[in-house]
Write a protein that binds this DNA or RNA. Structure first.
Lengths: 227, 227
DNA sequence: GACAGTCAGGCTGCATGCAGCTTATCGAGA
DNA sequence: TCTCGATAAGCTGCATGCAGCCTGACTGTC
């Protein structure tokens, strides 16, 4: 990991990294399973990686601590924790309910931008379908979720939706190994359904499509965690 | 733990204040309207008050920043922000839905401890009823909400319930002035209903009682904010 | 060989100083 | 008098050093 000063001058990969950027990066890494339960997030190490001091890293860790996905203990370290089986079930049961609220609380009708974004995701999903990759699947799913969030009119619901998504995503590390092309097909079908719903301007359908998809994922999680 | 009398006279009455304690205190002050929108939470000032440096204060502020009730801007300061009328409506609509989920997602049957706590709150509410005080009302309501949260079995729902409560509570500063004995009566009725439900072991009723109460509060908020 | 005690290494929590940004105030010029 | 620019004060963001707490390894003893 030692880098010569010369190499450091040559390799400044992340310009302008502040606490907010670090927060987003850490959360993304958790969702994309770059960090998995048990991994240690050492402040000094992350500070070196981002080329900053420990302070903004600490700030970022504090800001995402409310999600319950990381725990800092004095003298020990900051580790990514795995939700208990009960917590996982609770999060998924909650997501099923939240999905149904998307169409009921201040629904917004998606525009052409949403449709185009969905088309792009569908293209990527179809491309991946020929050669499945868990990482790609997670990335597409991640972007899809943010897109769905942007279609949620109720700001409070949107916040909780994103929160529950991150918590659920953090549990997929044990599912990722068992994932095959069938989840890719399910993703294609989900995106197709969403595109149809958006084309028809059926905002209410979006939530229910999400509910179906979450239920599907819940089933896979149940198997792995024997809930 | 023993302190010399001299030190006790000099020292502030808050021993062992770390970032977690400051976090709880700040949130409580927001819920109890000690801090209102527009107020500045200066790190240095809070640090002096709690007898610590700016660092744990910063950590506490960062941890509660996800609620959207405070905003820090470089060079300006950290201020308590007022939710927009739309956000307030969204939070309340969300709380109405969350209340209905209490009895559906992993309901837990309250025990004698919950009943006793409710009785104590009812006593305090009845005492206050003879001489109304907005501060006392908010304090009782605050403790009641934490008690309700302890009756929510689904951990994810509990977290979101508390989150939505804090956001709603931060908007009551404009309602507090118009509050009179009638809200005290409503609180007494709510507590009475809750006690009856708990005595009957009717866990499902708790959520619906809450929903009624939230709807009542929503009505008052609507008037003040002309939603 | 087993076990308990000790010590060193490493990590987070906290204190403190500096830099950068923003705003308000004051003064000079038109 | 009004306007605009400079300046100073204050706040947050960041860097850095120290203290306290855990843990794991090592060693001396039984």
């Amino acid at each position: 990991m030692d880098v010569t000063p010369e190499a450091e001058l040559i390799d400044p990969p992340e310009p302008k990294v502040d606490a907010t950027a670090i927060q987003r990066l850490l959360l993304e890494r958790i969702c994309l399973l770059k960090y998995q339960p048990g991994d240690q997030l050492k402040e000094a190490e992350l500070a070196r990686e981002f080329g900053v001091s420990r302070t903004p890293v600490r700030d970022a860790l504090n800001r995402i601590s409310h999600l319950g996905l990381i725990v800092s203990r004095n003298g020990v370290g900051t580790v990514v924790v795995s939700l208990t089986a009960e917590q996982i079930r609770h999060v998924y049961e909650m997501r099923l309910e939240l999905a149904c609220l998307i169409g009921r609380l201040s629904p917004i009708t998606p525009g052409p931008a949403h449709l185009a974004a969905l088309q792009r995701l569908l293209d990527r999903a179809l491309t991946m379908h020929s050669r499945f990759s868990a990482d790609d699947y997670l990335a597409i799913n991640h972007e899809l979720n943010e897109l769905i969030a942007s279609m949620i009119g109720n700001t409070s619901l949107r916040s909780m939706w994103l929160q529950a998504y991150v918590q659920a995503a953090s549990t997929w590390h044990r599912v990722a190994d068992t994932m095959g092309p069938e989840v890719s097909e399910a993703l294609v079908k989900e995106l197709t359904d969403l595109i149809i719903a958006v084309e028809r301007g059926d905002a209410e359908a979006i939530g229910y499509i999400q509910r179906v998809h979450i239920g599907y994922g819940f089933g896979k999680v149940k198997e792995v965690y024997s809930l």
